[in-house]
Design a protein around this nucleic acid. Sequence first.
DNA 1: GATGAATGAGGGTTCATTCAT
DNA 2: TATGAATGAACCCTCATTCAT
Lengths: 209, 209, 209, 209
Amino acid sequence: MVQAASTRGNARENRERVMAAIHAAAIAEFSENGLKGTSTQAIAERAGLTKPQLHYYIRGKEELYEELLMQVVEAWKGMFDAKSTEPAKVLGAYIRSKINLAFDKPEISRIFTREVLDGGRNLEAFWPDSRKSTRDKVAAINGWIARGQMQPVDAHVLLMAIWAMTQFYADSALQVQQLRKPTQPGWTPDRDKLVDELTAFVLRGCGIT
Amino acid sequence: MVQAASTRGNARENRERVMAAIHAAAIAEFSENGLKGTSTQAIAERAGLTKPQLHYYIRGKEELYEELLMQVVEAWKGMFDAKSTEPAKVLGAYIRSKINLAFDKPEISRIFTREVLDGGRNLEAFWPDSRKSTRDKVAAINGWIARGQMQPVDAHVLLMAIWAMTQFYADSALQVQQLRKPTQPGWTPDRDKLVDELTAFVLRGCGIT
Amino acid sequence: MVQAASTRGNARENRERVMAAIHAAAIAEFSENGLKGTSTQAIAERAGLTKPQLHYYIRGKEELYEELLMQVVEAWKGMFDAKSTEPAKVLGAYIRSKINLAFDKPEISRIFTREVLDGGRNLEAFWPDSRKSTRDKVAAINGWIARGQMQPVDAHVLLMAIWAMTQFYADSALQVQQLRKPTQPGWTPDRDKLVDELTAFVLRGCGIT
Amino acid sequence: MVQAASTRGNARENRERVMAAIHAAAIAEFSENGLKGTSTQAIAERAGLTKPQLHYYIRGKEELYEELLMQVVEAWKGMFDAKSTEPAKVLGAYIRSKINLAFDKPEISRIFTREVLDGGRNLEAFWPDSRKSTRDKVAAINGWIARGQMQPVDAHVLLMAIWAMTQFYADSALQVQQLRKPTQPGWTPDRDKLVDELTAFVLRGCGIT
DNA sequence: GATGAATGAGGGTTCATTCAT
DNA sequence: TATGAATGAACCCTCATTCAT
């Protein structure tokens, strides 16, 4: 009887463990090969399952993909903390967060870039949300400009610039990795130094002293 | 037989015309769906050929892809004209060229980003070349810094930042297109204004007055 | 333990209740989708069970199907009460019974038609029985003819005609249902009127006044 | 060169031959196992093709099915020639045509019955057509009744009765076939005799002398 | 008894490529 | 050259059933 209870406890645990494995496998595969390029076979194998087993846990490839995608967007929420009135702090924190994510979870970041390249059709689901979020950011920046806290720049361009610069380190992570292999110590991005450099660059670009 | 002869006379022209059609079709498809996601069927149809016809002209999907990729890289050569000694001019021209390419041939640009996401395995072929090109740019920037023409920034970071900011407009073109459809006049990137904004931002970021 | 005992007391009841649910679910599914087209999943869901639970109660899909089929045939026994000597009464009662079944349990009726279409391989089990039953009916009809109570018709043809005419209303029930949806009040089969019409038609056809 | 021409001629011929084989195979399979129950594998094998080969000729299983279904309906058009004013002739010809089809192409007839059992969802495409056709038939019958050429019967019931009686011989063909195998010479439907019997039965049922 | 999980086969369909003509 | 056809692998997904618990 006790065993039964513990068994049921294990059942939940087990399911969660398997789901975690599937998610990890899917993130890796989607990030490497995209939605179309990824086969359920590959996901299943990486997660240590057979194909039909995989389908016992997920509804389908696309559903799994969308789920993952939503996680990314979720992770990006609140990175730009527009509440503070000090642009230097806000932008600095934003850059740091995005770089951290790019270094810590480059795969998930890459899935997003791929989705954008594909036209972002699957992104529409939470775009309304994203649109509002963008509007808030733009408003904050324009506020700083109005208050003379920074140069008059196009808020959209600024946001996209920061976005692109930070995203780059996730997108090209594989490449950088590979480039390091053949001799060439050359240049390797050090996270903290990078954040400092980028922040300084952006703040100067905005005329924030 | 006469026809055969005359045909042979046009053969070269014809082949070139067909190859051009294939390349255009392939660029469009690869840009939209990636290497794995693109079917030879789709390329053939877009080029107005049948599948076996297509295989008469190309060796295989991957070969075609690599060929195309090389063209992109070729197109990027010489954009950063390091010969000039005025950083403002060099950087401004570089930004303008890259934005122009992003606006004029976003597909080709997107293929490259995709390739980077895929790990850039197919890029290795001409990396030696690219590596030298990068070295030259870095040297130029460091020269400017040494001569006090700009703030001391990490040259690699600067190059990547510019690359990322400009590339962004090609990568997200589809998305922007789609977002504009539903109402939202909002923000639309105007090329010239964008170049000015970005240039000003970068120059300020580099401390170039 | 006590619970186990009390449970065992109800066990029989419970099993019967579950079996009834399974049968009802199976009838609905088989009638809609046929033997091959029906999934155990669907039966289980309709019966409020999980798939493994279902397999605890039944041996297999085919066995369940055969069981059901036998029930149908059982229901058809004794419909044609050949004992009476008045053909009008016998045939009238037969038509009424079959129409009633077609209206009340069209699903079960449809399963049978499907089985016939499939070649009736599963029907062989009780065909001997059916064959005798048919022989009796034929004998009765031929008796009436011999006694001048009706026109000389081929008894087999007559039986099949009646069978087909009545079966039709079960087989096409779904269709009629669907056709009624879009406007078309048109024609709707009213059971009593239908029985009267058919009976009159058959009796006239047999020359029974 | 001549060969080339003849080859192209053969190409068309060949395609037609293969398509005919596919259609025959599909009719057999669909008639035996229904839409869901039929596998493209089975169709392909019966037609002497591999599965991918089959897909070279057809778009998909459902499309093939619908095509076939439409053929049946097409074949049924014009069977009930309502132009004549003599009910005996019209009904007699109708019965004969339908019985002929049931004997000559029972499979195709069975596909239709199966479709009806499935709810006739795929039939809706040409129902409008069918509805008008039914209306015409009903009008003809009611005309005869009005002119005193036959007993007042419900036209719909009459039409369905004839339909059901004739369809029966297609639906149960397999069964009858099987029943004949084991000894039992018993009763075998002879086409001409059957038409006569049914016609006489129906005419009497309608009070047509 | 009931539940999560596993399994192996098969479902329909599309793919890149090659072959004869 | 260009076309119809073939091929064999792979795709995503569902199935009926069984096994532990």
